[in-house]
Every structure is written in structure tokens, then in C-alpha cells.
């Protein structure tokens, strides 16, 4: 009996110690972001008081908007340092366009109940930050329905004014050639936009098409160092020809958040 009791006590202590240890590593958002496996049709009819994508785009900035949309991928859930409130950023899309939900308040439990494909109704404010149209201070409710968007091929839109019309959508670029990440460098990627970062930070890499070079990003909050795409980019070589899938984020111009890399 004594041995059993001692074992029980020890196990309880070990469990306690394990839970206390925690983790200090950086991380990513959705464990498997933006890898569409199931496909459903998005509802084309909107509920009462819900905007169509066209109406949303026509709405003035800083006005309240209501949309029905489907989660495509999500960045890491964060807890505000001082208020303790939870929030997360979502890439969402319906049949007609995409909606970027910036730092939408939600609990960790709610965040975990929102896998890719989930239909939600969001009420928030239409905002713009450095060219990125987004919904801020969103409140959401889960609705019935599921939809994962196909990647839209926008390769021929690169470098054109038309590209912004696909902002925040899940897109693909095909046949791009990997270029040096910085002038005079032979590396295909760098940490942060200027190489100042470290493992776990965003990765930046350059690709070219028809003589023009474009900068793409692995957003670490979306795809952290444990994800395949993060590791893949670190394996890229200058001269590789790649197809890239990701979300067409915007920051003072196109700044795609890449989630899938396929070396041809």
C-alpha cells in the first residue's frame, strides 16, 4: 500500500511539475494553415442585414460592416499583455472576395472552435492600414456551413494595378524563380525584412517573373518555424523555380503571406 501511495504521490507531483514547465518557443497559428483538403460551396445568399462583398467594398472606412464569411486560416491567438484579453487575426473568404479580420477579440476556447472552413457572421468596423483593408473590433457568431476557397491563379496580375482586386484572397503564383534575398547575398531567404532577425521570425524571400522581382513573406504568426513551409523556404536555393500559394496581404503594396511552396 505504501508503495502504491508513494507512486500515486510521485505521479501527481510529476504531473504538476510538467504543467509548470510550459513552453518558451515561438509558434505559429493554425497548425495546418491554408491547405485546402475539403471543398464546399459558399452560400451565395446572405442573411438579413448582411452585406455582399460588393457592398462591403463600397462601404466607407470606419463604418460598421456585417459580413458572412468562411475562415481560411488563422494567425496565432494572442493575449494582451496588460488587459489579458484574447484576440486573433483571421484570413477569411466567401465566394466573392476576402475579408481580413485583424485582431478579432476571442477567447482561446473560441479560437480553438474555429477551424478552417467555419462559417461566421462578423460585425465590425471597416478599416484600412497601410493599404490593407480589414475588419477591426469584430464580433462574431458561428453559423452553419463550411467552405474552403480554391487558390486563384494571379500570376499574370503580378506587377499590375489589378492585383489589389484580389486582396486577402487565397491565391497562387506559378513558375517564379527564386532570387537572392538581398543584394550581394547568395542566400535565398532572410529573417525579417532586412536580415536582422533570428529563427522563429518572419522569413522574407525574393522571386522573379519576366525580369521583375517581388518580395514574399512567411508570416511567422501564421506559419511558424515548426511548419513545413517555413522549413521549405529555408531549403530554397537561388535559381529554384517555384509555385507559391498564400494569402494576398497588403502592406504599402502586395505582401503575400505564403503558406505553400512547391519546387518545380
Amino acid at each position: 500500500m505504501k508503495k502504491k501511495l508513494a507512486l500515486l504521490v510521485t505521479m501527481a507531483m510529476v504531473l504538476g511539475l510538467t504543467a509548470c514547465g510550459g513552453s518558451s518557443s515561438g509558434g505559429s497559428g493554425d497548425a495546418e494553415p491554408a491547405v485546402p483538403e475539403t471543398k464546399n460551396e459558399a452560400d451565395t445568399e446572405k442573411g438579413e442585414g448582411v452585406m455582399t462583398y460588393e457592398e462591403y467594398m463600397a462601404a466607407e472606412l470606419e463604418t460598421e460592416v456585417v459580413v458572412e464569411t468562411y475562415i481560411q486560416a488563422k494567425q496565432e491567438w494572442l493575449q494582451d499583455e496588460t488587459t489579458g484579453q484574447g484576440k486573433a487575426t483571421f484570413y477569411t473568404q466567401d465566394a466573392d472576395g476576402a475579408y481580413f479580420l485583424f485582431e478579432m477579440p476571442c477567447t482561446e476556447e473560441e479560437y480553438n472552435q474555429l477551424p478552417a472552413g467555419t462559417k461566421i457572421k462578423v460585425t465590425g468596423y471597416k478599416s484600412e492600414w497601410s493599404g490593407e483593408t480589414e475588419i477591426t473590433e469584430g464580433k462574431f457568431e458561428i453559423e452553419d456551413g463550411s467552405y474552403i476557397a480554391d487558390a486563384v491563379d494571379v500570376t499574370d496580375k503580378l506587377g499590375t494595378d489589378d492585383l489589389i482586386n484580389y486582396q486577402n484572397q487565397y491565391v497562387t503564383f506559378k513558375g517564379l524563380t527564386v532570387e537572392p534575398a538581398a543584394e550581394g547575398s547568395e542566400d535565398a531567404y532572410m529573417y525579417n525584412w532586412d536580415g536582422s532577425g533570428d529563427e522563429g521570425d518572419d522569413l522574407y524571400f525574393n522571386v522573379s517573373l519576366n525580369g521583375q522581382t517581388y518580395s514574399f513573406t512567411i508570416e511567422s504568426l501564421l506559419c511558424g518555424p515548426d511548419t513545413d513551409v517555413y522549413k521549405q523556404v529555408k531549403e530554397l536555393k537561388v535559381g529554384d523555380v517555384v509555385d507559391l500559394n498564400g494569402y494576398l496581404y497588403w502592406y504599402e503594396g502586395p505582401n503575400p503571406h505564403i503558406t505553400v511552396v512547391t519546387v518545380q
Binding site: S23, E76, D80, E81, G86, K87, E103, N192, L221
Partner: peptide, 13 residues
Amino acid sequence: KNKKVRAGLPCRL
């Protein structure tokens, strides 16, 4: 570049 200040902490920590 490209980072809005995110005054938040990763959840699992």
C-alpha cells in the same frame, strides 16, 4: 516593416 504593433502574447505561454 510590415508589422503592426501587436501588444499580445502567445496563448500557450
